[in-house]
Design a protein around this nucleic acid. Structure first.
Length: 298
DNA sequence: TCACGTCAAGCAGAT
DNA sequence: ATCTGCTTGACGTGA
């Protein structure tokens, strides 16, 4: 079991997600920002190594406007050695990496332009991981997408479009159950027709399910992962204290977390903490389970 | 230096 | 109709 966090490290004063306004676009600006983002990413990974954090989600903003039509700069070649160096560091330290395209990537959209842009954005995410020479255990997670007043048709459209993707995209793509449109049961239906692995978000599952208990949900989603996909991934968060349903907590609730860990003792998985204070909660969680035999066993 | 409106992009649900 | 949340505040103009 590895425990990780997404995109931003609050203990460091750099961001790997710097961007700028489209109207201020220039190649010079772009190069500077990308370089700064890549340098910061390596700094975050070094911080993670020192703190024994071996799971991390790389921000989609690493390369600003990567899948936008304005982009005519061959960043893949220009920064090839930077990507390679980061990839070597990741592999040498046995780190697990994921990425998560934004809300604008909707594979099952009924709008052709949105669909087309989604394909470009997926290709960009794949390129980042490929340039780092990471294997198929490095994953790109998306949600199923929109419902468009007809869930079954929208599921079928997802299946059809997923199956038409290139293998270099499919080998990395995984879907996550969400809290309002597509739950675990829906994802399992898609898995049957596509073999796509499912990330279980336990908080989303709590908000929206088909009656499966947590351990039932674990048994079901574990079967969707194959050897080449690596250890199954779980997302964890809890509800913000006093916040609305769906809001992510600002800091980890260690009592809730301990209960979750006790309820999942039969499973070994990598755990992404989606909590606002990022690495701070990871360090607390790691301290709590440092004697758990699953922890860093791989 | 700082406040705050805006930022490439979609969708659903709440208000 | 407008706002909020999502992976996430950062950018940058104008005072």
């Amino acid at each position: 079991m590895k425990i990780g966090y997404p995109c931003i490290n609050l203990s460091l004063d750099c961001r790997s997600s710097r961007t700028f306004r489209l109207k201020n676009y220039s190649e010079k600006r772009l190069k500077e920002i990308i370089k700064s983002n890549l340098d910061c990413l390596l700094n975050i990974l070094k911080y993670n190594k020192e703190n024994r954090i071996h799971f991390f989600r790389i921000t989609s903003d690493l390369i600003p406007f990567a899948s936008h039509s304005i982009m005519n700069f061959y960043w893949q070649k220009y920064f090839k050695s930077d990507f390679w160096q980061i990839g070597q560091f990741i592999k040498k330290n046995k780190m697990r990496i994921t990425m998560h395209p934004g809300q604008y990537t909707v594979l099952n959209s009924i709008n052709q332009k949105v669909y087309k842009n989604s394909l470009l954005d997926l290709a960009y995410h794949v390129e980042v991981l490929d340039l780092m020479e990471l294997d198929s255990k490095a994953k790109i997670q998306i949600h199923v997408g929109g419902v468009y007043q007809n869930k079954q048709e929208s599921i079928n459209r997802f299946i059809k479009r997923y199956n038409s993707l290139d293998d270099n995209i499919k080998r990395r793509l995984i879907i996550e159950n969400d809290e309002k449109s597509y739950n675990l049961n829906d994802c399992l239906q898609i898995h049957k027709k596509t073999e796509i692995p499912i990330v279980l978000d336990v908080y989303h599952h709590e908000c929206f399910n088909s009656g499966e208990s947590l351990s039932e949900a674990f048994k079901l989603f574990f079967k969707t992962w194959y050897d080449e996909d690596g250890i199954p991934i779980v997302h964890y968060s809890s509800q913000k204290v006093g916040g609305k349903k769906g809001n992510h907590a600002n800091e980890i609730d260690l009592n809730h977390f301990e209960q979750f860990i006790k309820n999942t003792l039969d499973f070994n998985f990598d755990l992404m903490l989606e909590i606002k204070d990022k690495e701070k909660s990871v360090l607390k969680a790691m301290k709590l389970i440092k004697n758990d035999p699953r922890f860093n066993s791989d």
